[in-house]
């Protein structure tokens, strides 16, 4: 069984995708079509790079350590949220999902 699939067992996690550095979807599970997972993977890769580029500049100008390299990002919507860590992205419910646990799990799985 795929290692990332276990994230779906967490409350509120609806989709989990693993993508390559170029944004190509390697595997994805959950309540979403394969096409949309491909789009989600591309978005997550792009968003990660934008956030990382901006964080690098913040660190450069502020001289403050501890921002880079960023571990991940969260976009919190009204009912759905996206969490990205390394080359993983998941869609979770905005209410009720154990976000801390999900992030910890994402970090652990991203190291495999």
């Amino acid at each position: 069984m795929s290692m990332i699939r276990r994230l779906l067992a967490l409350d509120g996690v609806n989709v989990i995708c693993h993508f390559r550095d170029d944004g190509y979807l390697i595997e994805g599970y959950g309540l979403m079509s394969h096409n949309d997972m491909g789009r989600l993977a591309q978005f997550a890769r792009d968003y990660r790079r934008i956030a990382q580029g901006n964080a690098d500049q913040l660190a450069m100008f502020s001289g403050m350590r501890g921002w880079t390299p960023p571990h991940g990002w969260i976009i919190r919507g009204a009912t759905q949220s996206l969490c990205g860590v390394a080359n993983l992205v998941c869609v979770v419910d905005s209410t009720g999902a154990p976000l801390n646990e999900i992030l910890m799990e994402l970090r652990e799985v991203s190291h495999w």
Partner: peptide, 20 residues
């Protein structure tokens, strides 16, 4: 050059998102 590269990357990604 770091700033220019970061902005170039951003606008390219934004344009591809917009295109999608």
């Amino acid at each position: 050059s770091i700033m220019c590269r970061a902005t170039t990357m951003s606008v390219n990604m934004e344009a591809s998102m917009l295109e999608a």
